[in-house]
Each structure stands twice: as C-alpha cells, then as structure tokens.
Design a binder for these strands. Structure first.
Length: 191
DNA sequence: TATGAGATCAACT
DNA sequence: GTTGATCTCATAC
C-alpha cells in the first residue's frame, strides 16, 4: 500500500469550510508522533468566534499570513491549541485540530501525558498538543516541512457536523466536523 | 452522569 | 478586573 501524498500548501489555500471537513481522516505527525485527525473546527475571520475577527494582534498574526502554517496559542492560561492557517482571498481563517486517533509514537504520548488509556491521549485540543509536544515554538512553522508531516486520507470517511465546543459567540454555527462514532472524539456529536 | 473549582496567561474592557 | 476555541479532579446525584 503506497503512502498517501503529503498535504501541500495549495490544500490549505481554499475556503476554511472546504478544508476543515477534508482534514478529518488525514494523518498528522509531529516528529513522527501522532495519528489520524478525528475532529476539527473551522474559524473564518467573519465569524465572531474567530481570534482573527477583531483584526490582527500579536497573538493571531500568523492567521493573517499565508496558508499552510501552524497557529498555536495558549488556551485558558494552561494549554496550547493547534490550528492550521487557511488563508484564502485574504480571509485570515484557521482550522482548530481538536482530536486525533493515536497511531504513531504511543510511548512518547503516554510519557508526555502520563500513563493513560489510549482514547484519552488526544481527545481534545489541549490534550493533543501535550501528547504531540506542541508549544509556542511551533507557532508560525510551515506544515509541509519537518517537524510536521501531514498526509491526505485514503478514503472518504463518514463525517458528522455539529456546534463548536466551548464558545459563546456564534455558538449555533455547525462548523465542528468529526469522524462518525469514533471513540476518540473530544465529545460525542448530537444526533 | 453531572456540575463546580482551580490552574494561569494574554487580550481586551 | 474579566473572559476565554481547556482539562483534571473532587463532590453530588
């Protein structure tokens, strides 16, 4: 079985609402550690919930740059969250990576997270960053070069959509995408 | 199963 | 001073 192609910058240079669902089922590795993307959320700059909505600041500057780069920010003062920038026609948008099914480097993930059951290693944006060792040092790095390795999915997965988690503005927008019935989701989708 | 507190940082009021 | 694109642990049902 051939290895699926790397995701190129052009993959991300489209509407975030096209890119986000296509990332479900893709593979994300950082320094060889990671797995299959199970859950993401889309944030467009016209969306009041997006960090870029209020304009460019020091924190969100990467979102205003070219597509195909990592935007990493600190969440609740404790965690890191990883996004893929999807600039398109000046849109300053990004996809939040919320959950992975761990497939590579399980030992490293367990070491970073403490001994845990597999389904709890990457089932949330903060957990995932801890498991993969993502920090502010990854902010602004290109996604098509080391330490990142992103590979396209092989088959079209069963995707479900729903409201995004933990936001108050534009909370009704169905811009959360997940792999149907996966046990690695951060939270189940309402049916 | 569900709800609440605490941890802790940076943007914003 | 308040609020978050969060997580863990404790306590209550």
């Amino acid at each position: 079985m051939p290895i699926p192609p790397r995701l190129r910058r052009s993959f991300f240079d489209r509407s975030v609402h096209k890119v986000a669902p296509e990332l479900v089922g893709a593979t994300l590795l950082i320094d060889g550690v990671g797995g299959t993307i199970i859950e993401v959320e889309a944030y467009h700059h016209t969306d009041p919930a997006a960090h870029s909505y209020v304009g460019r600041t020091e924190r969100n500057a990467v979102m205003f740059g070219p597509a195909g780069y990592a935007y990493v920010y600190r969440s609740y003062g404790i965690h890191w969250c990883l996004n893929f920038v999807c600039e398109h026609e000046g849109s300053a948008s990004a996809v939040l990576i919320r959950a992975l099914e761990p497939t590579q480097g399980l030992a490293s993930m367990r070491r970073r997270r403490g001994l845990r059951e597999e389904r709890a290693l990457c089932s949330g944006p903060g957990k995932l960053c801890e498991a993969l060792g993502v920090t502010h040092k990854h902010n602004g790095l290109p996604l098509d070069r080391a330490p990142f390795e992103l590979r396209a999915r092989r088959e079209l997965p069963d995707i479900v959509t729903g409201a995004r988690i933990g936001i108050t503005k534009a909370a009704e927008k169905p811009w959360r995408y997940g792999l149907k019935d996966s046990k690695f989701l951060s939270k189940p989708f309402k049916t």
